[in-house]
């Protein structure tokens, strides 16, 4: 599993991670290295435990045992907010934005979190160019600048997905955890999000969960397959595609 990491410290490493909900083992001895700059896709059937794994990495869910290392540093016990400040950002399978804020305010909020001074009680935050200028740049990158002043709750589903990526980018992460960024998007919207992911690839180390296999095999440097909480295969996309265990457990269902 460590064939690509060589001597370099992986950007993100999972070491023998476990988690159970009651009797249900959702994460089962998962170990994984993600090299710096790599786009690592995690695929697997519904209920395999992909979202739970992202929750564990991001700190939203506690792990029963095992370790999570960010650039070699153990972050297992840290809160989600602390992990974000250390450079680990995420998006959610079910869109998570602040609907009453405008798109610009949503992104500026993340810029503010990074810059600090959030105990400042005076000065109109909406007019702070130190927050708005970087936020506008990012909105431009994701193609939402024209919709920046609309309440985020009124954006289309695809636009909300893009906004969520913009928010994650505004925290200036080194590692991005993306939980099905294409979920629920129509064909046009998903093309826009895929184009955006292509832009982000290489700029950040990315862990991508996705059901859209075309997108996965087009974007991923490496792919891991999660079934019933276990990683049953991990490697280059083509190797994983050919893996008989994978074909049987997962791809086989929809293969030719």
């Amino acid at each position: 599993m460590a064939e690509m990491s060589g001597s370099e410290t992986p950007a993100l490493a999972l070491v023998d991670l476990n988690k159970a909900y009651g009797a249900l083992k959702v994460t089962d001895h998962v170990s994984l290295d993600v090299a710096t700059g790599e786009l690592h896709a995690i695929i697997g059937p519904n209920g395999a435990g992909k979202t739970t794994l992202i929750h564990q990495m991001s700190g939203l869910a506690r792990s029963d045992s095992g370790h999570i290392l960010l650039d070699g540093q153990d972050i297992t016990g840290l809160s989600m907010a602390t992990r974000v400040r250390k450079g680990l950002a995420r998006s959610f399978q079910i869109t998570s934005i602040i609907p009453g804020f405008t798109g610009l305010e949503n992104v500026a909020l993340a810029v503010q979190a990074r810059l600090g001074s959030s105990f400042r009680l005076f000065g109109a935050v909406s007019r702070e160019e130190r927050l708005n200028a970087p936020a506008r740049d990012i909105l431009e990158t994701v193609g939402l600048l024209g919709r920046a002043d609309l309440p985020a709750g009124l954006l289309s589903h695809g636009e909300k997905r893009q906004l969520e990526l913009a928010i994650a980018m505004a925290t200036e992460p080194r590692v991005l955890l993306l939980d099905e960024p294409l979920a629920g998007t129509g064909p046009e919207e998903s093309a826009a999000v895929i184009a955006l992911l292509r832009k982000l690839k290489g700029r950040y180390t990315i862990v991508l969960i996705e059901h859209d296999m075309d997108a996965v095999f087009a974007l991923a440097d490496r792919v891991s397959v999660l079934v019933y909480g276990r990683i049953i295969a991990s490697g280059a996309p083509d190797a994983v595609r050919q893996d008989p265990a994978v074909r049987e457990a997962y791809l086989g269902e929809e293969g030719p």
Partner: peptide, 17 residues
Amino acid sequence: RVIRGAKENPVRMEAVG
């Protein structure tokens, strides 16, 4: 802004730090 954001979506607030 932090107070207002935490009212609408506390998990999002933690996810930006």
